[in-house]
Design a binder for these strands. Structure first.
Lengths: 231, 231
DNA sequence: GCATATTTGTCCGTATGTATA
DNA sequence: CTATACATACGGACAAATATG
């Protein structure tokens, strides 16, 4: 038995070393992915014992990983009770869209003279259409997120990019508690395409208007469904 | 000797319990304050042993605190070498101002109809003037930071507030390595006052223009001095 | 409301790996 | 290249809080 555990241990160490990260960060990445996939839905309690056993890391290391994810707002930490996958309130959802309006709008407004570097946006729209055709609705959502991350990237600010990555990861938490993912993702692929075309034509101001309408509609639809879901 | 340590321990526990936070967060808060005060200037290495001994917390707990502050970009974590108070590059400074232009500008642009809730801004300007009179230059800097935090707060988004708190904490790291704090703080008290008056008059768009010029000048002056300082 | 079991919070000792004088 | 110092990670211990019956 010690043999098999040793093998697992080595594998873990290697995959951590590969990218020169600590085991704690490796653990955080694994958990972050699980949460993003929806494998640990919001509200799930993550037991130190269970997770630590499953991933073969010590409690101390696991707690470091928990801290990281708590700081990213994916987990909440209740003193002496443990950590849970975050359940967003409707107010959180509203704040997320407030931030999106602020940042994504500012990113478009910060653009100088066309033409713009739109490769990432084009790729995201394309991936969105492909996912729609193949009815992979969850992937449609991922492509949409990727598109809006691309919009923010136009501002060329690493810190803003990171903020947005966090915000959109939070948004994913909402998606995972909703059924009918198609309804929340499919309509927006076309609208992203419209934003892209407007930008390609060099009309950043016009794109900003389309974006604003997009965010309003998306928020309305999401808040409506989410409030119903939470009861 | 166990006696005295016990007393310290109890004090620490109580002051943590008071706010219902863990010892790790209490530790992080203490360190954050020390860094903000400039007591640990950029580049300082924080030894697990030394700090842990001084604050009477175990290495495990201290490491949790380090993680938190690393995530806030106040510390950098070099694998197997420890944590250091961050030294900002000129590119960081430029990104910080990029973010400020984006966010503070967007906050002003998001304003609806006047009048606006300007209490926090008025208080910050007043505190700035008082600190100037008494030649407390560092406090002048604090008041200025507080003013711009107030601008962002006008957008009414907790997440944006938090982002800005982090950004401005980073900016403080730069201030602490510069001499002549007066030169970097005093000129801007008046300009904050001008922004405030423009807002009070209901002219958000005009305030945005003043702000943009403010940020350009401030960045230019700071980058210049900082680049010279770094050699 | 009480007693018990479970889980977290914290600390410590130690083995190993890594960086640097 | 060796030695030293230090970070990394683990596992065990016990106290304290919480959950369960």
């Amino acid at each position: 038995m010690g043999d098999q555990e040793d093998v697992l241990h080595k594998l873990k160490e290697d995959s951590a070393r590969q990218e020169r990260t600590s085991v704690a960060e490796w653990t955080a990445r694994v958990l972050r992915d699980r949460i993003a996939e929806g494998l640990f839905p919001p509200g799930t309690r993550l037991s130190e014992d269970t997770i630590g056993g499953a991933l073969n890391v010590s409690r101390n290391t696991l707690r470091e990983a928990f801290r990281l994810l708590t700081h990213e707002r994916l987990l909440v930490h209740e003193l002496n009770r443990g950590v849970f996958v975050r359940i967003l309130e409707v107010e959180d959802l509203e704040d997320i869209y407030r931030v999106r309006r602020l940042i994504e709008g500012a990113a478009l407004r910060s653009l100088g003279q066309p033409p713009y570097a739109l490769d990432a946006l084009e790729q995201a729209v394309e991936e969105g259409h492909k996912a729609v055709e193949e009815k992979r609705w969850r992937d449609v959502g991922t492509a949409n997120i990727s598109f809006h991350q691309g919009i923010v990237a136009l501002a060329g600010s690493p810190r803003t990019d990171e903020l947005m990555r966090g915000i959109l990861a939070e948004l994913r938490l909402v998606f995972h508690v909703m059924d009918d993912p198609r309804a929340f993702h499919e309509p927006y692929v076309g609208r992203n395409g419209q934003i892209l075309r407007t930008l390609r034509a060099g009309d950043a101001r016009g794109a900003e208007r389309v974006l604003a309408a997009y965010l309003d509609d998306s928020q309305r639809q999401l808040v409506e469904g989410y409030a119903r879901k939470l009861g």
